[in-house]
Design a protein around this nucleic acid. Structure first.
Length: 483
RNA sequence: GGCCCCGUCGUCUAGUCAGGUCCAGGACACAGGGUUUUCAACCCUGCAACACGGGUUCAAAUCCCGUCGGGGUCACCA
């Protein structure tokens, strides 16, 4: 049977690393087996949907390198892939369940239920919804609705235990007394997650469901619903959760764990993907660097672990550093341009030749933000960039202004020097030799003079990028600094 | 609190299902050293874990029980 998986986010914000991993694993399962992968937007919570939510999710998934065979943007034979546009389908299913006696109208208000929950808590009891006896009739429900009261539809749970056959956690048994009649249709007529999710998966032919562990204990609802609806059971697998370094659940509200924020911070998507893939999964050996294509080959649900993982940014950084070092020039250029387009920087984003040059001379960078930090000042105005007082003091002013003296002499030599890499190199090292100074005593004063700091690419590369005029202008400005 | 799940270096993990090859391997981080015109990168070395307590066994990280710890879930959110 062809495997069909899906990623069903709700458009309540943006894609974060947890969701990205779930999407990735589902994509990997489908692609690795020649199956299908679909994207479905679960926007049944009118209060929580955010504008652009769907667009942002699509944007972030694409950036990661994922694609889908069916989805809101690409269509497909089972559309719409926006749940808000499938309300009639859910209504039909609810109707069918009502007709068959699998569901009934319930008239309690949210306030009443809250009250009951509070009571239960006060008595240290677990609250469980008690099925009314007798059940409200269709007539009573209609009357209540006419009177403006909230009417929901609840599923009539069978009085027997349900077991989930999970491919990660194994057989998980939920006792009959843990089940209660859950809501399948809200008062606003929208389906709840459980109903819409189950109906869509069945109608869309999804036969492998991999999702976060937070759903494991609720899977019984889906199983029971499918039974009542006469749909086959899919395969289930639940993923352990991703926690922050304090061991707390990654908050969906924290923007800094959003896929987009890593993009904006100058990470490469392949590094994020590689890193995320190793959170809760391992190929079973010591290998840990993979391309998406290699992951497709290797990924297997049986190698998913059971314990939660912490999101270690240091390791991600290391992966990104390695990915940057491994990436080819065109790959780096396009990603770097993307980074620049997302951030305000003084680096001229439209000069590809220059960008390539910057990329080439800034070897060893960890993220594109490093390049900006290192090279940005080269493109600021010659007379407005800041001089770091500490750098000036340490490199130029110390020892009676030895650094300044070196700088003044070098300024004269540089003014006459042919502005080519080799010539500059020769010029500076000649100076070092005649003065019997180590390179550091010479390069550093120049560096501070032309960048204001002790941080820049190699000194020759720095001077080449600046050009003679800017270099001399900056040295002159530096020489004017109060001593 | 009820129920469910999990527990190997600080972190991600290999090894656990089929007990011996594990005085536990790799990677990140960290520490020390090297290279070096800065930062970074790079190279070398080192530090560091089977949660605890009982069993079973000739033998346990691996099997069983208990304890402790962590997480999830108990919505008209998904």
């Amino acid at each position: 049977m062809t495997l069909k998986t899906r990623f069903p986010p709700s458009p309540t914000g943006f894609l974060h690393v947890g969701g990205a991993r779930t999407a990735l694993f589902n994509w990997l399962i489908a692609r690795g087996a020649g199956g299908k992968f679909i994207l479905r937007i679960e926007d049944t919570d009118q209060a929580r949907n955010v504008p652009e939510g769907t667009e942002k999710i699509i944007r972030d998934l694409k950036w990661l390198g994922l694609d889908w065979d069916e989805g809101p943007d690409v269509g497909g034979p089972h559309g719409s892939y926006l749940q808000s546009q499938r309300l009639d389908i859910y209504a039909q299913h609810v109707h069918k369940l009502l007709e068959a006696g699998w569901a009934y109208h319930a008239l309690e208000t949210p306030q009443q239920l809250d009250e009951l929950r509070k009571q239960a808590q006060a008595q240290k009891r677990t609250f469980r919804y008690l099925r009314p006896d007798p059940l409200p009739t269709a007539g009573e429900a209609e009357a209540a609705r006419q009177a403006g009261k909230a009417v929901v539809v609840r599923f009539k749970c069978p009085d027997e235990s349900v077991s989930v056959n999970d491919e990660v956690f194994g057989q998980v048994e939920i006792a009959a007394d843990e089940l209660d009649d859950f809501v399948i249709q809200k008062a606003d007529g929208y389906p709840t997650y459980h109903l819409a999710n189950v109906v869509d998966d069945a109608l869309m032919g999804v036969n492998f469901i991999l999702r976060g562990q937070e759903f494991l204990g609720q899977s019984w609802r889906h199983i029971v619903l499918r039974r009542a609806l006469g749909y086959e059971q899919p395969r289930y697998a639940h993923l352990p959760l991703i926690m922050d370094m304090q061991g707390k659940k990654l908050s969906k509200r924290e923007a800094d764990i959003g896929v987009y924020s890593f993009r904006k911070a100058g990470f490469l998507p392949e590094a994020l993907v590689n890193f995320i893939a190793l959170l809760g999964w391992s190929p079973g050996d010591n290998r840990e660097k993979f391309t998406l294509a290699e992951l497709c080959e290797l990924f297997d649900v049986s190698n998913i672990g059971k314990s939660n993982a912490k999101f270690d940014r240091d390791k991600l950084l290391a992966f990104n550093t390695a990915a940057c070092a491994a990436a080819g020039p065109e790959r780096l250029l396009s990603s770097f341009k993307d980074y620049l387009s997302l951030n305000e920087t003084p680096i001229p984003a439209d000069d590809e030749g220059l960008l390539c040059q910057i990329l080439a001379i800034t070897k060893g960078f960890r993220t594109f933000a490093d390049i900006r930090a290192k090279c940005g000042v080269l493109f600021e105005s010659d007379n407005t960039f800041d001089y770091d007082p500490k750098a000036v003091k340490k490199v130029l002013a110390k020892n009676d202004g030895a650094g300044f003296a070196v700088l003044a002499e070098l300024r004269r030599m540089l003014a006459r020097c042919d502005w080519q890499g080799e010539a500059l190199e020769a010029c500076i090292s000649d100076y070092c030799q005649t003065k019997e100074l180590p390179m550091g005593k010479v390069a550093q004063p120049i560096r501070v003079a032309v960048t204001g700091r002790t941080l820049s690419p190699g000194i020759i590369d720095t001077l080449m990028i600046l050009g003679r005029d800017k270099t001399l202008a900056r040295i002159d400005r530096c020489l004017q600094l109060p001593r």
